[in-house]
Amino acid sequence: MLDYEENPYNPNPVTKLFTTFLFGLTAFHQINILFEWGAVLLLSFIFYKNGFIRDAIKNITSFGLLCLLPNLTVIQSAHFILKMFLMLLLMYRIFYFPVTSGKLLVKTSDVGSVISSMDKLKLPRAVSIPVAVMFRFFPSFREERRNIKLAMKIRGIDFKNPLAYIEHVTVPLLIMSSNISDDISKAAETRCIANPIKKTRYIPLKVKFIDFLYTVLVLAILVGGLLW
């Protein structure tokens, strides 16, 4: 009946959630650089196979640039403004894998499958509904942000005065964010999301070969990278 087909290269949200948690461990203990590149290529492959070609390329180039960062001793001897800037980048480098894996999770999962994944994990509705609303928030937010940027350009608000810029961008962004989350919650409520019965899925959540392969590869990269 439906020509909606599931992508065989898209792991289900439970897998992506689990691997994001695993990638989180790299923030506490850095793994070998070769294995890090393995992880970057794996993430880019999944992005690519799900139609996010730009993200796949961005992932490789931004990690490549982050690899050029000098080490801590060099940073410490730098000028304090440069030091602040480099430290921020270094922080990003530390959290790079959990952040990118989280991005993959958000970009490649639809709201319905996220809810049913959380149902499978027996998470209470009080947790699963807000998380689902959060998932839906990002695409709306991106659309609103584009409009705010347009308005700012026309009003001549630019980054020359960073403090004023941040103040001016925050006001509409906060108001729009609160409007978006209100709207999404209403849409969800009128779709009977809070109905306590057991929900059905048109396309049931399956464990596919990619789930198995992806988890094993991530585990292998992490364990290998630690032991190497």
Partner: peptide
């Protein structure tokens, strides 16, 4: 634009039916 909870149109049409627990045949 404030109306939808899903990003894919088909899933949007189906999500209400999934939430009231219809079978796949009934949804079809």
């Amino acid at each position: 634009k404030t109306h939808f909870f899903n990003v894919n149109t088909t899933l949007e049409l189906l999500s209400y039916l999934e939430n009231i627990g219809l079978s796949r045949e009934e949804m079809d």
